[in-house]
Structures are given as C-alpha cells and as structure tokens.
Design a binder for these strands. Structure first.
Lengths: 214, 214
DNA sequence: TAGATTGTTAATCGATTAACAATC
DNA sequence: TAGATTGTTAATCGATTAACAATC
C-alpha cells in the first residue's frame, strides 16, 4: 500500500474544489462528475480527474461521478482539517491585521493563537480576539506553546531578525510576506509570498495585451 | 531583432531581484555578479544568469558581472515602472484595506485611484488617501477613467457580480482574491490569488515533516 | 596568460494534456 | 447493450539544472 505524494499544483487547487463542493452541498447536490467540475471551474478535465483521484478514498463511479459529501471529507482530511494547528503572526500592520481576520485558514486546519509586534501602542491589544504581545516574548511563547508555524508580516529590514527568533522558538516552518529571502537552517521550511510578485506576472500579460491592441 | 517572451517564473522573481539590488545600491555597491546574487538569494546560479540575461540590455561582463544601476533600470522597465497605470479595488474589508496600503505596487507601475464598497459607512471615506465610492458607480468610473485593472477583495458570493461590472467598465484584467473561479469573456485576463491555496502547499510540506519526526 | 564569469546549448525534471482501456 | 465517466499510461510542454565554449 503506497502513498503517492500529492503535487504542489494539485494542493493549490484543493481549496478551490473545497469551496465549490461546499456550495454544491448547500444546494443539496449529492453527486458530481469530474467533467462537470472541470467545466464549472474552467479547468482541464483530466487535471480534475487526476486531482480527485489523488485525494479520494472511495474514488468515483463511472456514469455517476463522485459523492459530494465524501469528496469534501477527503479534501478536508488532506488539508489537515482534523488536526488544527496553532500558529502565530509577527507584525500587526495592515497586512497582518487582514490575515488575522481571514476566515479561510481554519478550513484548512490552522488557527492563530497569538500575534506579536514592537509597537507599544499595539502590545496588549487584541485583533479579532487574538492577543498582541511584545516581540521580545516571541521565541519564548513559541517554545512554550509548541507553535509549528510563524507568519512574518513585518517590513523587509526586520524580517530576518524575526525569522531568527521564530527559529529560536523551534518553529518548523515560516510563511514570509516580506520581500526578502530569509537565511534559515536547512530543516526549516520557508514559503515566500509576495504581492508584488503576483502582480508582476499579471502586469506582463497585461502589457502584451496593450501592445497587441496598438 | 527578436523579443523573447519572459517566463512566468522569471517575472515572479524580478521583484526579489529589484529589492535586493536596491539594497546594494544603498550600500554604494557598483557591480554584482550572478553567482553572488544566487548565493545571497538562495537561488540556482544558472537560473539567476538566465533571468538576468532575459531582462538586461547591456548584459554582464565576464569577471566583473553586472552594473547595479543598469540592472535596476532594466528590471523596472520590464515591470512597467515608467508607465504608471491606474487601477481600482472593490471590497474595502481587511484585505482590501491592506492592499490599499501596500507600498510595493508603485514600484512595479500600478497606482490605486479609487476603491468601491457597498457599505454606506465606508462610502465617502478615504483609505490611505484613496476615495471609497459606491459599487453602483463602478462600471461608470472605470469607463470614464480608462481603468485597465480591477482588484476584487469582496466575499466569494459577490465576486462574480463585481467582475461583471468591471467588465462593463471595460477593464482588461482582473486580480481576484475571492476563492471562486470567475466566468469572464475570453479576452479578459484573470489572475486568482488565494491565501488558503498558498497555505495549503506549506501545510502539506509541514505535515510530511511532522510525520517524518515520529 | 589564468581564472572567474557570462551566455547558450543539451539533459533533466515535473506538470499538463492527450489517448484509451476498464467500468458501471 | 450503449454511453458516460473513471483511472492510467503515453506524449507534450515549460522550467530547472548541468555542461561548456566564449570573453574579459
């Protein structure tokens, strides 16, 4: 019995499937086929079939497709819904605040339990019910509460210092929104997120469109 | 004289290069080699060389590398720094607010000129100096001001309606943060952004790490 | 000249898409 | 049975990485 690792791109699509299936569930739809999903989500048919095959336990049935309820359970299981993990956020600026309010993380098994900031004005307050502590307490807090993941939303010039403290606190992974590449030990997982990066791709496509129209 | 199209992944890396080079410029560093950049940014050496080759006009010189100033200019040109484009945002919630405050967009040639929302409490206010109008005025505003790009940060269930209005307003592209796939005419460019998607990838890697440690 | 660095051609890797047999 | 749909094997495509000749 083998467990085939699930591809990066498939994982990125899972939350879309989940959202779509939950909407179907609301409308009391019991079964759904891969081709229908593909059409509705504007994805390639085979891609959807492969994605579903890689997470579904029971699989689909020819002619009728997949049971909506089961698929939802399968995807949620894969995304880790059943073992909620505690995470922290550092940098309670605008982006930090937005993430603390984001509702989509619980659905994939993550919950903010604390936020950290340097600004005395922010320390001691709460954001969406989550307490804000001094960054001095970061490493200690992570260690004591067994935090696995830290989200960095501080400016670029303090991101590395924050990362170092998170690592002192024994986190396993860092989700970094600062526009710098962090230097971390090999066994620490870092995922970089950059709004400007995403816009850069869109921008290039847009430029080509504008050029074409001349 | 051919223009080779620049790859999606290269584009995503350009903002990182730009940020890194600007830091070097601050420290009065005049020239930089691809291998050094690769080491500092934890990227493959050849990847950096190819990326730089695809944007640099004058190219590098063996032994000494690239002129920092020229590289910055080349990357900025590619990202569209020199023709700022006006964009709008719809949905002034937490995420919308964060984006309106984000400083990284100007650096790649985009400027928010208006925001839209349905909430009467928000209409008429300003966020970071950007006026908030009623969503009713969306299509009209875009058309009159020749807006090329609309950013959607409304909840999933109203995202499609907003997209329809943006398209009425003749925008060319949509940057969609709602967790749904929009239905749009073929010639409209849509880029989907989903925080949960990104976390899903990180989550899976993390799960494997945790499993390994048992 | 010797050595580091560039730019490019070839090999590898992973993801997408096409083709098709198996199934209800 | 006929036809839609599944699951998988093979072909294609794009990006990364390795190898190497050209250059200052």
């Amino acid at each position: 019995m083998e467990v085939k690792p699930i591809s990066r791109h498939t994982l990125q699509r899972l939350p879309y499937y989940l959202h779509y299936l939950q909407a179907l569930q609301q409308e009391q739809v019991a079964r759904i086929s891969a081709p229908t999903m593909a059409a509705d989500l504007h994805l390639n048919e085979v891609k959807v079939r492969k994605d579903l095959a890689s997470v579904s336990h029971t699989g689909g049935k020819p002619k009728t497709g997949f049971a909506v309820d089961e698929l939802i359970a399968d995807i949620e299981e894969h995304l880790g819904y059943h073992n909620i993990r505690d995470i922290v956020l550092v940098g309670v600026g605008h982006l930090g605040r937005a993430l603390l309010h984001y509702r989509g993380f619980e659905a994939i098994g993550y919950r903010f339990v604390a936020a950290f900031d340097n600004d005395p004005q922010r320390i001691g307050t709460e954001v969406n019910g989550i307490p804000v502590f001094s960054t001095n307490e970061l490493a200690d807090y992570c260690h004591r509460h067994n935090i696995c993941l830290g989200v960095i939303t501080v400016p670029a010039d303090s991101a590395q210092a924050v990362a170092d403290r998170l690592i002192d606190g024994q986190v396993l992974a860092i989700w970094n929104f600062a526009p710098v590449r962090l230097t971390v030990p090999e066994d620490i997982l870092v995922q970089n997120e950059n709004m400007a990066s995403s816009l850069a791709v869109l921008s290039d496509h847009l430029k080509m469109k504008l050029d074409d129209e001349l």
